[in-house]
Amino acid sequence: MLTIRNIRKEYRHPNGETIVAAAVREFGAAQGEQIVLAGPSGSGKTTLLHLIAGFTEPTAGEILWDGERIDAWAGRRRDTWRGGNVGYIFQNFNLLPGLDVRENVMVAAALGNRKFGSEERRRISDLLARVGLGDRAGHKPSQLSMGEQQRVAVVRALINTPRLILADEPTASLDRDNADIVLGLLQTLCREQGSILILATHDHEVRARFPRVHEMTRPGRIPA
């Protein structure tokens, strides 16, 4: 269960202005929920995902996971929590270029879950087959199409069966057909695993496929 209260992320501009990158008064997600963060560019969707994942710390407010304030945790504890509980999907895939498909997924299993054995190997093969990449496991990301790369990123995010999947514009770089495939896989797999899916998008067709939408607005600037 994820709960966010009165959260703000601010940056100080060199000219003295305070830039509010994200501001959310109240937000919550129950296990298995699929939610879209909708809003125009600059409304803080990515910043909110970064805050939830613990990539950065809020200037104010609270982020709770099962009732515990994860924003107050030390870096190492947050790393451990993220590795076991969060799967993150980027708009531009961010697969590691030197590693092949299997190794890209394996890295997440080994670093996130802290274990990697025959069971994890089998699960990687199953999931890659599930997204139609069973025969591409030895290929480098540069040898894949963008749609295929994003499918690998989906598998990487789901490999540790995380309870929370954060997806930042995962279909923005894809054509409509590939976007439909990736989105379909993501929603189906999250439903099967019972994971919370929070997906940031400004695409109306994508938001239409989600039962719940959280609207974000541009937080603005505070003059010096």
């Binding site: 990539f55 190492r76 790393d79 590795g83 590691l96 890295v107 997440a108 670093l111 996130g112």
Partner: peptide, 13 residues
């Protein structure tokens, strides 16, 4: 960026 991605998928410092 690769390093940040590794951190995002669960790598610690």
């Amino acid at each position: 960026r690769d390093r940040a991605v590794l951190r995002a998928v669960g790598a610690s410092q």
